[in-house]
Design a binder for these strands. Structure first.
Lengths: 257, 257
DNA sequence: TTTTTATTCCGTCATTAATACGTAATGATA
DNA sequence: TATCATTACGTATTAATGACGGAATAAAAA
């Protein structure tokens, strides 16, 4: 029988903060598909987002980054905090009792131990190219896979709500800050970036108006080259104007689509 | 020597969650002034926002509401969660040691007890009419008063950052959701609501354009009456169209000023 | 008493932004 | 050879925004 994260938390209880955790909603984009990385830690059939505990020596942002790295292998993921979740309904381990923990770890605790209280979870989200990610198995060999955003399996506790809130936050975010630099190749076509926005916002955007606005903001620059694809006519290639892109990332620049 | 909140937390450690707390930034508006409610819990000279701990039986939203009520006496305050703060720098009680706690409470604990780890704090803000509030002293008789938003005294830990982030969130919020219903009398004048927006946003808004946009949204309705004030000509009175106001509160309705 | 100033109110105009379509050229497919 | 999807460029209408002009009133100042 494999050990669960809660055992580990309990065994290393001096290393982690109590009653607080981090939950990362890791979105992945690739070829007109938006997915979310989920894991199935126990054999309950229920899935969870990529969560973990906070070490007493690290900040919540560092914890989120570490936890995301442990699953995706990606350093420098930008994780945006969007909300905290906390109510008495979200107890970590319904199946656990003081007796069971005593059998498993040899530790004697009472039923009013903090491990039986609920955990407040700080929600973060990020967006990456999912073909770049090699999923790493967790310490307890959990199943872990990408799920399309519209086919989410049964989730534990309030994790479906967490995903929905994260998606809402992501969509609000891209109305003010540009995306694409980590998601598209260095040189990309207008149809590619158009599909990216349409997929994430899940709505059709008039191609002529979309292009006009994007170019008006100055964050994309047209190149002389075209992309040689077998199918159809060769579309022009564009690249981001890094300076303007970073400026817009920093200060925000409302993009209404 | 009065007891500190930490003593109480420690004594009632079965009642509260560990390593998590709530911090409420309570903004108060009255007569063209925006203030924030702060308390000075210990005689350190430093001030804090209105914080407290989360009971294991309540949600974080309920905790925020209870904590705000304990200071202001106001039920039904709407508190909006805006961010969580957590890094190893924000230890609650620098002055406390295991020895000191043992002397004060008789409890024997070690220096790696969770009370010495940092607390993740969930930040909430609210906005009220500060002339409606009768400040209640806390259990430990802390000094508690309203401070103008531009004259914040020295704050503990990252509490100045918490106020600044809350103010940023508040200003973003009123760009999408109406305010005023809890802040203005039932019947109010255009100059009054104009001053409210100008004060909170801390910028001048063209009065003609402001009025035009407000009326275009339909959330205010002109009345036949005028306000009989001694000074100057009698301005018309307006009231909120509650139905449209609540609709805008629910769905959001961008108001660019 | 007359002039000045502050307050409240209503209105205009130029500019910019948003929305909704039209259509031609290309090359793959039927 | 005809059809269709893809890419690209353009325009017309409507709506929103920002910057001003100025009149009427009444209090305050001269």
């Amino acid at each position: 029988m494999s050990k669960s994260p809660a055992d580990s938390l309990f065994e290393n209880e001096k290393e982690y903060l109590r009653n607080v955790s981090v939950d990362n909603v890791i979105f992945g984009y690739h070829d007109k598909e938006l997915k979310v990385l989920l894991q199935q830690p126990f054999s309950t059939g229920k899935w969870t987002v990529i969560g973990g505990y906070i070490k007493r020596t690290e900040s919540i942002d560092q914890a989120a980054k570490r936890i995301a790295f442990e699953r995706t292998g990606l350093k420098n993921l930008y994780l945006e905090q969007f909300r905290a979740f906390g109510n008495p309904g979200r107890v970590r381990e319904r199946g656990f009792t003081a007796k069971k923990i005593n059998e498993m770890t040899g530790k004697k605790i009472t039923n009013d131990h903090w491990i039986f209280d609920y955990f407040v979870s700080i929600g973060f989200y990020t967006l990456t190219e999912f073909s770049k990610v090699t999923i790493k198995k967790g310490l307890w060999g959990e199943t872990c896979k990408w799920w399309p955003i519209n086919e989410i399996p049964p989730m534990i506790f309030d994790h479906l709500l967490i995903i929905k809130e994260a998606l809402k936050a992501l969509r609000l975010h891209i109305a003010e800050y540009p995306i694409g630099y980590e998601l598209l190749p260095e040189k990309f076509t207008i149809p590619e970036i158009h599909a990216l926005y349409q997929t994430i916002l899940e709505k059709n955007l008039d191609d002529r108006n979309f292009t006009r606005k994007l170019i008006a903001k100055g964050i994309v620059v047209k190149l002389k080259e075209t992309k040689k694809i077998g199918a159809h006519r060769s579309p022009y290639l564009y690249k981001f104007d890094l300076e303007k892109y970073m400026q817009a990332l920093k200060d925000g620049d409302i993009l209404v689509f």
